[in-house]
Amino acid sequence: MSTISKLLIIASAVALTFASCSDEDPTTNDGTSGEVVLKLDHRWNGNPFALNQSLTHPVNAEGLSFTTLKYYISNVELKSTEGDWHKATDQYFLADAAQGENQLTVKDVPTGSYTDIRFMLGVDSLRNVSGAQEGALAVSNNMFWSWNTGYIFVKAEGTSSTSNSGQFTYHLGGFSGPNAANPVIELSFNGALLEVEGGSAPQVHLMVDPSHLWNGGETTASTPMVHMPGAKAKALMMAFKNGITWDHNHN
């Protein structure tokens, strides 16, 4: 085979390879899409929340303090005034209360007016079965079970005045079967509109209240530790889900 035909084979292979493997350049401000910022404000029963702060649970009166609160938000979708849902694909966010208020930037949202938002609390099953991931889903973020593959959707750790160990450790997740614990949270803007235009980044302001972890009947005394998927993890996730609410938008 001549050198030229070898080169041609390589060149065509490269071209084919490129065509089959490469992602399109991310769409930016070409006028048809913009960004939306999700602001996550952590609250405890209506009051400002911070790590290492002494807290009393509003329902069961347990004395608590958080050292860690991290959770995944993914598959953000916005509902247009026409009633269609627009999904921001392949965007995964790891929120961390250690950063105070979190601002998650959702990219590639089509321009338009939106009335509702929904998103997954956790990570979809596909990303739990597809091997090594990067960015927010990198295993080095320590939100991953090495021995029982899957993402930890919510990690909540801290001290407790009532648990035997003096601590609570919740590693919550589970992506399959009856113990799937990655609920979709759907929130209406209550008549307000979110206006997405190229070049601007309107904000959706959400409140996240971790006291809801224990509003479903669990206490740190009865359940000091959850380290794997299962009924307990699911129950705590479903309770926590109700602590995430919409507050207001900024256009």
Binding site: N128, V129, S130, G131, A132, V139, F144, S146, W147, N148, T149
Partner: peptide, 20 residues
């Protein structure tokens, strides 16, 4: 992978021995 099949993807196998 593993005796209990807890790891569902070849790329994630090394995480277990690295971190155990």
């Amino acid at each position: 992978f593993m005796w209990d099949g807890g790891i569902n993807h070849l790329e994630l196998v090394p995480v277990a021995p690295f971190t155990h």
